[in-house]
Computed example of a mutant assay.
Amino acid sequence: MADNSQWQEISQKGLWSNNPALVQLLGLCPLLAVSGSVVNALGLGLATMLVLLCSNIAVSLIRKTVSDAVRLPAFVMIIASLTTCIELLMQAFTYELYTILGIFIPLIVTNCAILGRADAFASKNPVLPAAWDGLMMGLGFMLVLVTLGGIREILGSGTLFANMHLLFGEGARGWTLTLFANYPGFLVAILPPGAFIITGFLIAIKNVIDKHLQERAAAKKDKPVKGSKRVRTTGKIA
């Protein structure tokens, strides 16, 4: 059973220090292609998180029974099966959003972050830590995706949470926030070049924060403990 420090380490890596989108730079194709709005980003992010969570659980369960010769093909089959299940669920309950996301739902199978976590972590750890790792990695990816989608939607359309009924039903039609009246729109923000630019800024902001945290930790480490006494040496021999 994992202790609290291991749970915290897994959470910290998935959400920040080893984030799939900002650090590992995995899954950039859907990250840049469909993050033009919050609803698109949230839909793909939830689908990816569910596949990552369930695949980690399944891989952990079979880790002692699958030989090295068929390990990776078995992982791919698990991920492909789970992706197909998510795809069918989206076709049944969120069909309009499914048609908007298009090919990027089936392409979850090829997301290196999912196969990478299955091979690097789930295949070497018990079910609960593997499930938590999948949840945190998926949540970290989804948060970056939604942040990127929110920024692009605001800059590109002047709105936020538009078309949320595609994911949450008719009751979510009134969730749209119009931030700028008569906003002409900023086309570059919606197009893929805008996604590259904004992603670069997000990575830069993360690097600045990491540098600040490292400097503060180093300063705290070097700071003398309050009440400690320094021994003076005169260089004289008695």
Rank of each mutant, 00 (worst) to 15 (best):
D3E: 10
S5D: 13
Q6K: 12
W7Y: 12
S11N: 03
K13N: 12
L15D: 14
S17G: 00
N18M: 08
N19A: 13
P20A: 01
P20M: 04
A21T: 01
L25K: 03
L26R: 02
G27K: 00
L28I: 11
C29Y: 06
L32N: 11
V34D: 07
S35W: 04
G36D: 14
G36M: 09
S37L: 00
V38W: 04
N40S: 14
A41M: 05
M49F: 01
M49L: 08
A58D: 00
A58C: 11
S60C: 03
I62P: 02
R63V: 07
K64V: 05
K64G: 03
T65C: 03
V66C: 11
S67H: 12
D68N: 14
D68I: 10
R71H: 11
P73F: 10
A74Y: 13
A74H: 04
A80H: 12
S81K: 01
T84I: 07
Q91E: 07
Q91R: 11
T94H: 06
E96I: 01
T99D: 02
I100A: 09
L101K: 04
F104V: 09
F104Y: 14
F104L: 10
P106L: 08
L107N: 07
I114F: 06
I114M: 03
G116W: 02
G116T: 02
D119K: 04
A120S: 11
F121Q: 00
K124L: 15
P126N: 05
V127M: 12
L128N: 07
A130I: 02
A131K: 04
A131V: 03
A131E: 04
A131N: 04
D133V: 04
G134I: 06
G134H: 03
L135S: 13
L135E: 00
L135N: 08
M136T: 13
M136W: 08
M136A: 13
M137T: 11
M137W: 00
G138D: 01
G138K: 03
L139S: 13
M142Q: 09
V144A: 06
L145G: 00
V146R: 02
L148V: 05
G156S: 07
S157H: 05
T159L: 11
L160H: 03
A162T: 03
A162P: 01
N163L: 00
M164D: 05
H165E: 12
H165M: 12
L167V: 12
F168R: 02
F168L: 11
E170G: 11
T178H: 13
T178Q: 13
F180D: 05
A181G: 02
L191Q: 15
P192D: 09
P193D: 10
A195Y: 06
F196Y: 08
I198G: 01
I198D: 02
L202Q: 07
L202N: 08
I203K: 05
A204R: 13
N207G: 09
N207L: 08
N207Y: 10
V208K: 11
D210Q: 10
D210L: 13
L213K: 11
L213N: 14
E215D: 15
A218L: 12
K220W: 06
D222L: 10
P224Y: 14
K226Q: 12
G227C: 10
G227P: 09
T234I: 15
G235N: 05
G235S: 12
K236S: 15
K236C: 06
